[in-house]
Design a protein around this nucleic acid. Structure first.
Lengths: 350, 350
DNA sequence: ATGAAAGCGCTAACAT
DNA sequence: ATGTTAGCGCTTTCAT
């Protein structure tokens, strides 16, 4: 099974460990084709597999990347984890999973820990607006990718941001809603604090402005209560429900509601039904993200898809690829969102 | 930052590396309290953290466990991953994430790879009925936990199975449905091949028999088509939809449908609506698992909850705890399921 | 109670 | 083209 070392291989093939090591590390030019073949077949025969710990100890670089997410229990992060792992696998890398549970202290501790374990590449899905606390590590040679976040002015140098183009995505949805004849459209979100949400809101406004819809007709719900604290899956839906209920009971209710993400949209759907109306027919509801649930929900949710697989692959490449010098500093990688029209939005009825 | 070694600590504290190492490994009895304190404060001061690679190289035991799941994109496995990681963290262990994508070859390869990386504990969520292919590894000292699976006759010795008590869970649901006045209840599942499904089906039958309901009244849908191949989230729902449509259009349709899991139940709900009926009022629908979605769906799904957090903690304990000798051989750890009544089931109308 | 020293398996100079 | 060898940071006998 295990227990076969590079020395065993070297002996069996009648060469030195260096030769085996050279072969293992792609320095094949340094040996006779004949030698190479012999060693290769010996490796296969013996079922030899290099010991990662030893390799890491020697090189300082483990074949592992770290992934820090709020919680893989959330399907959005689960999808990222899945695709990132798949991408890493193609290069023989493994993924160490860390759930921050949206606890900043825990998030920081995880990063520190990963670094001191020698890990040189981390995908961080931070709930913190500023990433200053990791800038020191970046100077130290750590490769850091911030996922689902776009670059900020005070970002540490060397940070790569991977995200969908939130503004464009929201704009697409705005256009869709407008083209359906909607004029009173609410943008529903918790407090628009995070970068993502701001971008989505602005993209949405852009679409409305282009359509000549006066800004006052746009309703936002800034989240009056402090109910946003925990911010888990269920909480996001609950927020959507409460806010939409309020909105719908108001004096001049919207004909369409664009929620900042799918979970919130699901809460909105419930509120619509609770108010005795039907989603799609009476009120259109749209989300953002296209989590698995969006397709499964009833009605199937119109939303904006993030190309998760491609984004995850890009995140891995940013960690693993060659250092691209200044170009890779403070960069954002924005991905093209896709409008997915399903059953929760429909033409406005006159 | 990093780069601080045990030697740095030893020098700074004026002791030898052995003493530091002894302290690190809990052999505190071997030194003067005074020495101990000095070393401890030095460690803190320097921000020293032992290098895992070196430790592993020396001991052969990494502080890492492996988790092999079909896909963390699936919220059920996502939840397991989350809780397992939390449990591991309490003992300073990390979790290496592997997505088998339900590919047996890939599953096997992952396990082999983890083992040859020196990992000694793996939680395996296999899609394979038999675990023979890993029995060799078990003899070799690997600790293996099979999750969501109960013991089989041909199980390799040393395997620990962690699972909810499927039979009891299904029995609870059966009782619930019967108590609501339902007499024609369908058990809806794909082909009942896996152990889990068999158990759920049998538990369900038990409840019906106790209530004196003739077995012929139970309808099962064995999955006539080969549509079950991929078996992803969406596919499970689709299966529920297709099967329920067929069932509802039949000569003597059931008043309640118990789906083998929540995803399938969601598909059933759609079929009910498509047939112009209302879930809960016209037809009761129940699921199994209590994934996040169950609570969020509309109507909120009545289901059987698996105590994921506890199950994950137990799985970790089985990997990490002391070897309990013969008692830990071929054992199953069955957890108590909990009936969660929500809105998708209601009393039958006469 | 503490220290000295021998490796764990591997890589990468540096020889030859 | 291939071999020799010095560690990477740590744990653990075995001395003292």
């Amino acid at each position: 099974m295990a227990g076969i070392t590079i020395l065993d291989v070297a002996r069996a093939a009648g060469v030195s460990t260096s030769t085996v090591s050279n072969l293992l590390n792609g320095r094949t030019g340094r040996m006779l084709p004949e030698t190479r073949e012999r060693v290769e077949s010996t490796i296969k025969e013996l079922g030899y597999r290099p010991n990662r710990a030893a390799r890491q100890l020697r090189t300082g670089k483990p074949q592992v990347i770290g992934l820090v997410v709020p919680s893989v229990g959330n399907p959005y992060w689960g999808a990222l984890a899945r695709y990132l792992e798949a991408a890493a696998l193609t290069e023989g890398y493994h993924v160490l999973l860390c759930n921050s549970e949206r606890d900043p202290a825990r998030e920081r501790q995880y990063v520190d820990e990963l670094v001191s374990d020698g890990i040189r590449g981390i995908v961080l899905c931070s709930s913190l607006p500023s990433l200053e606390h990791v800038s020191g590590l970046l100077d130290d040679g750590l490769r850091l990718v911030a996922f689902d976040r776009t670059a900020q002015a005070d970002d540490p140098v060397g940070l790569v941001n991977v995200s969908v183009d939130n503004a464009v995505g929201a704009e697409l949805m705005g256009e869709h809603l407008v083209s359906l004849g909607h004029r009173r459209i609410a943008f529903l979100s918790g407090a628009i604090r995070s970068v993502n949400r701001t971008e989505r809101f602005e993209g949405f406004l852009r679409a409305l402005e282009r359509a000549g819809i006066a800004r006052p007709d746009v309703v936002t719900w800034p989240g009056s209560s402090g109910a946003e604290g925990a911010f888990g899956d269920v909480e996001a839906a609950e927020l959507g429900r409460v806010a939409a209920t309020e909105l719908l009971a108001g004096p001049n209710p919207p004909t369409a509601i664009f929620a900042v993400n799918d979970m919130t949209a699901i809460g909105v759907c419930r509120a619509v039904r609770d108010a005795g109306m039907e989603v799609g027919r009476d009120v259109s509801v749209a989300g953002f993200d296209d989590i698995v649930l969006a397709e499964l929900y009833s009605p199937r949710l119109t939303t904006v898809r993030q190309p998760m697989k491609e984004m995850a692959a890009a995140a891995f490449r940013a960690l693993h690829g060659p250092d691209e010098g200044p170009a890779s500093q403070g960069t954002s990688l924005l991905f093209r969102p896709e409008l997915v029209v399903r059953d929760s939005t429909a033409a406005v009825v006159a």
